[in-house]
C-alpha cells in the first residue's frame, strides 16, 4: 500500500486543535505519544499471541485518535491492521511488517506533533 502521497499531519486539523486546546495542545502531544507507545506495545504482544480481538481493539482505538489529530496516514495503517484482524485470523504474526510500518509512521507523527507545538 502506498502512503507516500499522504501528509503525516493535516495542517488544518492541527490549527483547529491548537485553537481549541490552547495551552493544552502540549498535553495532547504528550498524551498522543504515551498513549500511542502503550498501544504499540500491546499490539506487538497481541500479534505475537495471535490475539485478533485485542489487536483489533488497539488498532481501532489508535485509528480514532489519529483521525482526531489529523494523522491520516497512520490512521490508514491502523485500518489496515483492523482489516488484517478480520480477514486472516490465526495468521497474525505474518503482518509484523505492517505493524512495523505503522510504528514508523507513529514516530513520524510524534515528531511532526512535537514540531508543531
Amino acid at each position: 500500500m502506498m502512503m507516500t502521497n499522504m501528509a503525516v499531519l493535516d495542517k488544518d486539523v492541527i490549527a483547529g486543535l491548537k485553537d481549541l486546546l490552547g495551552e493544552g495542545f502540549v498535553v495532547l502531544v504528550d498524551r498522543f505519544a504515551s498513549d500511542g507507545a502503550e498501544r504499540f506495545e500491546r499490539m506487538q504482544k497481541a500479534l505475537a499471541a495471535n490475539d485478533a480481538e485485542a489487536l483489533y481493539g488497539e488498532a481501532h482505538g489508535l485509528k480514532g485518535s489519529c483521525r482526531n489529530v489529523g494523522a491520516m496516514m497512520l490512521a490508514q495503517y491502523c485500518q489496515d491492521l483492523e482489516q488484517a484482524c478480520e480477514d486472516e485470523q490465526g495468521q497474525l504474526p505474518q503482518h509484523q511488517t505492517l505493524l512495523d510500518q505503522a510504528n514508523q509512521a507513529f514516530e513520524q507523527v510524534n515528531a511532526a506533533l512535537a514540531a508543531a507545538r
Partner: peptide, 13 residues
C-alpha cells in the same frame, strides 16, 4: 473513552 487524546479533545469541546 479509552483513548486519552480523544477524551481530551471531546472534553475541551
Amino acid at each position: 473513552e479509552d483513548s486519552a487524546v480523544d477524551r481530551l479533545i471531546l472534553e475541551k469541546i
